[in-house]
Amino acid sequence: MKLAIPYDNGQVFQHFGKTEAFKIYDIVDGKVGPSMVMSTNGQGHGALAGLLRGLGISAVICGGIGPGAIEALQSLDITPIPGITGDVDQAAQDFVDGKLVPNTEALCNHHHHDDGHSCASHTCGSGGCHAH
């Protein structure tokens, strides 16, 4: 299977729809196998689910993510695992080891507010964007 994680300088990037890169892992025989960092080439939000499906991704570990992105991923048989922070390699290992605990509170529901709020201004995965 293939696993993707929004990537920024070795960490889980905390806004799925604005990630500039994914770290892609091959999970082979229950172990983390080869990986590579892949640019999104400026694609965002709605286009990312299709990009990941085209790569054969089965699951996405992420920080903050909106309900529309979750629905888009699920419609393509990609399992979203939200609310994860920290080192991407450790997150991939925790996934394989069955230790990864999704935080369904990490949903970004405010992207179109007129109050100037942006996910980029904070860490979506810490308590969830919906708290704003």
Rank of each mutant, 00 (worst) to 15 (best):
residue 1 M to E: 09
residue 3 L to H: 03
residue 4 A to Y: 07
residue 4 A to V: 07
residue 8 D to H: 14
residue 10 G to E: 06
residue 11 Q to I: 11
residue 12 V to Q: 07
residue 14 Q to S: 10
residue 16 F to S: 07
residue 17 G to F: 01
residue 17 G to Q: 01
residue 17 G to L: 00
residue 19 T to I: 01
residue 22 F to L: 01
residue 23 K to C: 08
residue 28 V to F: 10
residue 28 V to D: 12
residue 29 D to V: 01
residue 30 G to S: 04
residue 32 V to F: 09
residue 34 P to Y: 10
residue 37 V to K: 05
residue 37 V to Y: 03
residue 39 S to C: 01
residue 39 S to L: 07
residue 40 T to S: 03
residue 41 N to W: 05
residue 42 G to T: 01
residue 45 H to T: 05
residue 45 H to G: 02
residue 45 H to E: 12
residue 46 G to F: 08
residue 48 L to E: 03
residue 50 G to R: 00
residue 51 L to R: 05
residue 55 L to P: 00
residue 57 I to W: 04
residue 57 I to V: 15
residue 58 S to Q: 15
residue 69 A to F: 03
residue 73 L to P: 03
residue 74 Q to K: 14
residue 74 Q to H: 01
residue 76 L to S: 02
residue 76 L to H: 05
residue 78 I to C: 09
residue 79 T to H: 10
residue 81 I to G: 06
residue 81 I to N: 07
residue 81 I to K: 08
residue 83 G to H: 07
residue 87 D to N: 15
residue 87 D to V: 07
residue 87 D to T: 05
residue 91 A to S: 14
residue 92 A to E: 13
residue 94 D to P: 08
residue 96 V to Q: 12
residue 97 D to N: 15
residue 100 L to S: 09
residue 100 L to E: 07
residue 100 L to C: 08
residue 101 V to G: 01
residue 108 C to W: 09
residue 109 N to P: 00
residue 109 N to R: 14
residue 110 H to Y: 11
residue 111 H to C: 13
residue 112 H to R: 12
residue 115 D to C: 12
residue 119 C to K: 03
residue 119 C to R: 02
residue 119 C to Y: 04
residue 121 S to E: 14
residue 121 S to P: 00
residue 122 H to Q: 11
residue 126 S to Q: 14
residue 127 G to A: 10
residue 129 C to A: 08
residue 132 H to R: 14
